[in-house]
Design a protein around this nucleic acid. Structure first.
Length: 428
RNA sequence: GGAGAGAUGGCCGAGCUGGCUGAAGGCGCUCGCCUGCUAAGCGAGUGUGGGUCGAAAGAUCCACCGAGGGUUCGAAUCCCUCUCUCUCCGCCA
């Protein structure tokens, strides 16, 4: 959510910036609601002030044993007025809030202006496409041939967009999770968090999934609980409605969780394989930073995520999302795209964003500078470090051999009990 | 699921027979004094959000004692609903 005062005083600027992300702001409506709300508040507070002072007079009169019935009668009237005005003010409050809640974040000046993903710019590349002297297969064929992935069985158990891992397939997924967590905690200084996989509505609103994107979420019937679409939600909300000490910043958390997404609106897209699932595993990096450090922290966080791909020796590129492709809450986002030879394309495997104070304002995450009064909003950042399922996809496709087996990347072997090559669900 | 207790400021903890209580007292913290240094001691200050005025410093007003509603001229204090925490019983991974 943007700052009301900022929007009010920079209406044209806000409108222009949002146009770059294809969002139309109804200025006149905004101004009208805002103005009405403010005059109401003024009137209300005048009345409340009067009620407070007169009530004290009444108390004094009664103490002295004098009659106060005239004043009481008058205050009865004032109180009734206050009550109706409060109801009215609440309505404008809500209306303004709704206007504000659906406005996306303002892109940083460094973000390229563009319409869609074709306007994203490649920031850097690492490694190169693996040369293969055979026709590389897509991962679903590799996995099914080896008997380590079973989509048919998952469909029987749940439905479309689920996967069942077998034997070394399951172990590889687990190895990746541990591998990523170890690097981020031991080498990059993140604190590991294992949060609830369901959260309440306040959390979803805090990080921006609600109210706008409820259809993307799985809701628990009969409860006001949602399955988390990413660890970002519970982990960012750890500090919701808190005032942090300046010295604690930046705070860096890493969290493995499964993620649940309805994928409403993506029917027919990526229907095969592990790419787009209702449930997938992810190791997420989350940072809370002082405003003047957040851009530096975004670079660090992105590098931390990249490090996983480098250790696994997977070719990737870093892309800066253009204004039109930017997510709702983000001011700037780098996508890490890994090369998938089986499909012959680069595929997003991590998305690292600086949300500036956008989430912090909604979630009420502030910090206090020593020696100064007042509080400031922190900046929140997060990024996948990495999407585990897609990393497994990248390994299958990049490390596949002509005979259908898959070599285990060097860095991962200690997590695989020394297995160097996968030839089936169990070690041969 | 059954029975009970509770939720107050950064923390501890009063208030809860309704009226100068944004909230005693203590701890912590900040600044000043004292001290050769440390400790102790003394003095002052120390919540958040918002409105109005002001260039600013600031002044002033309003709201907030788990959340929401109600009673009342007036609610931290009374009533109702909900949430959470704790204790006991039952059930259970």
């Amino acid at each position: 959510m943007l700052d009301l005062k900022f929007v009010r005083s920079h209406l044209d600027q806000v409108k222009d910036m949002l146009k770059a992300r294809d969002y139309e702001l109804d200025m006149s409506h905004f101004e009208e609601v805002d103005a009405k709300r403010r005059t109401l508040i003024t009137r209300l507070e005048d009345l409340r002030h009067r009620r407070n002072t007169v009530s004290q007079e009444i108390a004094k009169l009664k103490k002295e044993g004098k009659d106060a019935s005239d004043l009481i009668l008058e205050m009865k009237e004032v109180s009734a007025q206050i009550k109706t005005l409060e109801k009215e003010a609440d309505q404008y409050d809500e209306e303004l809030n709704q206007l504000l809640m659906v406005i996306p974040n303002i892109p940083d000046a460094s973000v390229p202006v563009g319409k869609d993903e074709t306007d994203n710019t490649v920031v850097r590349m690492w490694g190169e496409k693996k040369q293969m002297d055979f026709e590389p297969l897509p991962h679903w064929e590799i996995g099914e041939n080896l008997g380590i992935l079973d989509f048919a069985c998952a469909a029987k158990l749940a439905g479309a967009r689920f996967a069942l891992y077998r034997g070394l397939g399951a172990k590889l997924e687990r190895a990746l999770i541990n591998f990523m967590l170890d690097i981020h905690t031991k080498e990059h200084g993140y604190l590991e968090i294992l949060p609830p996989f369901m959260v309440n509505r306040a959390c979803m609103t805090g990080t921006g999934q609600l109210p706008k994107f409820e259809e993307d979420l799985f809701k628990i019937e009969g409860w006001d609980y949602f399955l988390i679409p990413t660890a970002e939600v519970p982990v960012t909300n750890i500090h919701r409605e808190e005032i942090l000490d300046e010295e604690r910043l930046p705070i860096s958390y890493v969290s493995y969780t499964p993620c649940f997404r309805s994928e409403a609106g993506s029917y027919g897209k990526d229907t095969r394989g592990l790419i787009r699932q209702h449930q997938f595993n992810k190791v997420e990096l989350v940072k809370f930073s002082k405003p003047n450090e957040s851009w530096e922290q975004l670079e660090i966080l992105t590098r931390n995520a990249e490090e996983i791909l480098r250790r696994l020796e997977l070719h990737y590129r870093v892309v800066c999302l253009c204004t039109g492709d930017l997510g709702f809450s983000a001011a700037k986002t780098y996508d890490l795209e890994v090369w998938l030879p089986g499909q012959g394309l680069y595929r997003e495997i991590s998305s690292c964003s600086n949300f500036t104070d956008f989430q912090a304002r909604r979630a009420g995450i502030r910090f206090k500078k020593k020696g100064t009064k007042g509080t400031e909003l922190v900046h929140t950042l997060n990024g996948s470090g990495l999407a585990v399922g897609r990393t497994l996809v990248a390994i299958l496709e990049n490390y596949q051999q002509a005979d259908g087996s898959v070599v285990v990347p060097e860095a991962l072997r200690q997590y695989m009990g020394g297995v160097e090559k996968i030839t089936g669900p169990t070690q041969s």
